[in-house]
């Protein structure tokens, strides 16, 4: 399998006022995602997992290191190569769902008829076509985030970058959408980097889980989840799932007081 993205010695340093030493958010991160692979990134809050994702997508300029997508360096946002699904609800409330899905295509200069057709295809894939002409405020948060995934898929990018997209949803909805994502990404052979703070989500979705440490953000461990995709909820009850999950939980090394929140 060829590589969709290669990240080489990526570092991001911040300077803030009244503090002479720069903060090392990410320290020489090496990672790659193969074509069709779904890699989840997990780590304690503040470990820089969102920063990593935003940097790989070109929204933050790295202090050093490089990002290559499909063999060419990425120097800034390029939605045809790497497309985001953000954590907050970012659908435009003044556009209906199909217009929202077509947004990136519109920005790319694709005419109305073809972008609407492509957006409708994506909505169908998400089984949301009957809501195409509704506005975001008329549908649930879970549906809004599925539309945001459709908006990213419509760009047919080399890599999809998902920044805790279902973090605001309840566990039930989140697992349901997770199964949906697993189905579609497998069907469409999509490559994705998926940041999450939920252990269940990380293991359930991933071909590979990357565990980050806190400041400086470094890769602590990589775990292969050797289970065929698409996965159904039955996988959650298997021995293998439970073993990987508890291994990750131990590796996270969360201070005792925070353990409650670590896997929700």
């Amino acid at each position: 399998m060829s590589q969709a993205v290669i990240v080489d010695k990526l570092s991001v340093h911040y300077t803030i006022e009244q503090q002479p030493e720069p903060i090392v958010a990410l320290d020489e991160i090496d990672l790659s995602v193969k074509k069709g692979e779904l890699v989840t990134i997990i780590g304690p809050s503040g470990c820089g997992k969102s920063t990593l994702l935003h940097t790989i997508g070109g929204l933050i300029s790295p202090t050093s290191g490089s990002i290559h997508i499909d063999g060419t360096p990425l120097l800034g946002p390029d939605p045809k190569r790497a497309t985001f699904v953000f954590q907050e609800y970012t659908l435009l409330p003044w556009k209906n769902l199909v217009e929202n899905v077509a947004l990136g295509l519109k920005f790319a200069g694709i005419d109305r008829a073809s972008r609407t057709a492509r957006a409708m295809e994506q909505l169908k894939l998400m089984r949301l076509e009957q809501y195409a002409h509704m506005h975001p405020d008329q549908v649930s948060g879970g549906m809004q985030q599925r539309v945001a995934v459709a908006r990213a898929l419509a760009m047919e990018p080399q890599l999809i970058l998902m920044d805790e997209p279902f973090g605001a949803l309840d566990e039930q909805t989140r697992m349901m959408i997770g199964a949906e994502i697993s189905r579609i990404f497998t069907l469409e052979n999509r490559s994705a980097l998926f940041v999450t703070h939920s252990l269940d989500e990380a293991v359930f979705l991933a071909d590979r889980v990357i565990l980050l440490t806190t400041r400086p953000g470094r890769i602590k461990e990589e775990i292969i989840v050797d289970e065929p995709r698409p996965r159904t909820r039955k996988f959650l009850e298997t021995r293998r799932f439970v073993d990987i999950r508890s291994h990750l939980f131990a590796s996270l090394d969360v201070p005792a007081g925070d353990r409650e929140g670590a896997d929700t």
Partner: peptide
């Protein structure tokens, strides 16, 4: 978040104004 969306999805200035800035 809308500015960031426009940047991430590569909105040209004209679309940024018409589709995002002016409606909001």
């Amino acid at each position: 978040k809308r500015r960031r969306l426009a940047r991430a999805f590569g909105a040209p200035l004209r679309h940024y104004l018409v589709d995002i800035v002016i409606p909001s």
